[in-house]
Design a binder for these strands. Structure first.
Lengths: 146, 146
DNA sequence: TTAAAAATGAAAATGATATTCAGAAAGTAA
DNA sequence: TTACTTTCTGAATATCATTTTCATTTTTAA
């Protein structure tokens, strides 16, 4: 978290941005969670303790975090863009439970390698990718079989 | 194409839908292309020869095709839902060129297998997935290096 | 042919995201 | 500090794809 704040501050400085209490609060709340927040969700969470903060401010901050490389935008097809803190650790993809909405992160280096081979076959240069598996998580399966 | 029309007709019958010339035209145009149409694009294409057809009709038809299992909804993150004819053949994923917008379909059974292994590890049941590789296609790379 | 049900197309509604704008706050230089 | 410039904020509004409404037309079954 310290590191992400440092990265953001460096980026903000480079862009000539000013530092404000609102943005600091949004950043802290965002980094201090393991959730995959939509703008709406983060806005509501922050609003509980800071009723004066505006939706647009949260929205702008999240877009800014993505620009500065400390957040990734996710789209799980429910019409809401989500944001995830992008820590220094390795890339991961997602299992998305369509029943309860829970998200499991996974990594599979072999898949990444195969992706590269596929791209190479077509002379295609991959910049980024999206790999999401939608279905029912173990917990929901257990509940359903009761 | 014949087969998809049959599948659709069966589905329409099951749903108690009536058959109309508009829907037949939309279906024919949709199946007779290899494109990945957005509603807008298909609407404009059809409109050239049939200026009376409405946007909403095209939209409703595409959603219906997806429901009946002869089309897949795609989202390449450009804010437009695209539709692809889902033929009897095997599942495929996509390489999306962010420079020219071209789309290459690929299949890699080994990735599919690995996906299943990942899911199994978490007791997760996959219903569907999305795997897209974004980058620059061979053609655009060639153009850029001129 | 007629009545019931569904389809169409234009217009309006919806909902997430993005922008505008006036006032507030932060940074800068003296 | 003060004056000045730039950015930020928050409310309201705009945008844009998608969806729905509704009056009218078309299809279908009896």
């Amino acid at each position: 978290m310290r590191e992400e704040i440092a990265i953001f501050n460096e980026c903000a400085k480079r862009k000539g941005l000013k530092s404000t209490s609102q943005r600091a609060l949004i950043l802290k709340t965002f980094l201090g969670s393991t959730s995959h927040y939509s703008t709406e969700e983060l806005y509501l969470k922050i609003r509980k303790n800071n009723p004066k903060i505006g939706y647009a401010t949260v929205h702008r901050a999240l877009k800014l975090f993505a620009e500065c490389g400390i957040a990734t935008e996710l789209d799980f097809g429910d019409g809401q863009t989500r944001f995830e803190p992008l820590r220094g650790d390795q890339h991961h993809d997602h299992l998305v439970c369509t029943s309860c909405g829970s998200i499991i992160e996974f990594t599979e280096p072999k898949i990444e390698e195969l992706q590269e081979l596929v791209a190479a076959k077509y002379g295609f240069k991959i910049n980024r990718h999206r790999h999401e598996l939608y279905g029912i998580c173990a917990n929901c399966t257990a509940i359903a079989s009761n």
